[in-house]
Amino acid sequence: MGTNYKISEKRFVRRITLDGRDESLKDLRFKKSGFKKCIQCGRCTGSCPTTVIHKEFNPRDMMRRFMFEDIHSDHVNEIIWKCGQCYSCRARCPRNCKAGLGVIALQHKSYEDGKAPKNIVEIGEKIRSNLYSKGETITPESYYLNLKEEFGKKTAERCSDNPTKREKLGFKSDDAREIPIPEDALDEVRYLMRLTGFKETNDGSEN
């Protein structure tokens, strides 16, 4: 479908051409967003907690972009990261579409292409590495932030001792699991990860 957008630099006219169709985004989630069923009613946008904070993000408009594959611009690459993934858009959609799901597909493409924002790349690497080394996404370390700076003095005072407290409860300080995942099970997880695109060198084990 008409994906070849030629936007003239001097004239603000979009051109949908007859030939040279781009491949649609392969990610299953893109299709499953249900954009084909969308009637652009805007109920998603009216329900979206992001739109009221980042006005450039608008789930209805995202769906329109999905329809016309208007998803490759820098602007789109920037706004997709504003979505909070709450799926309020999905819950209230009269046609049961999932704008948020299409957005993750775009986020993932952006991440794969190395176009994700720096902080996402950082968290991403951490999460992927946790997944590869422990079978977990979030680990206690991910949360050992500068508590005072992030959450305030009282919270820092109350929570700075949490690593010790968790150990008293029988949890390790560096693992989310009471009983860490056994090595053979972890091998299975890693096998599946490699099979689905994780590269041992730059994403997973980092060795």
Binding site: D27, L28, R29, I80, W81, Q85, I104, A105, L106, Q107, H108, S110, Y111, E112, A116, I120, I123, G124, I127, R128, N130, L131, G135, E136, T137, I138, R177, I179, P180, I181, P182, A185, E188, V189, L192, M193, T196, G197, F198
Partner: peptide
Amino acid sequence: PRQSSCTGSGVHLGVVPMET
């Protein structure tokens, strides 16, 4: 204990592929 993460935190940040 063999259970792995559902990968949700990674999926909903766009950093884990749907296939994984």
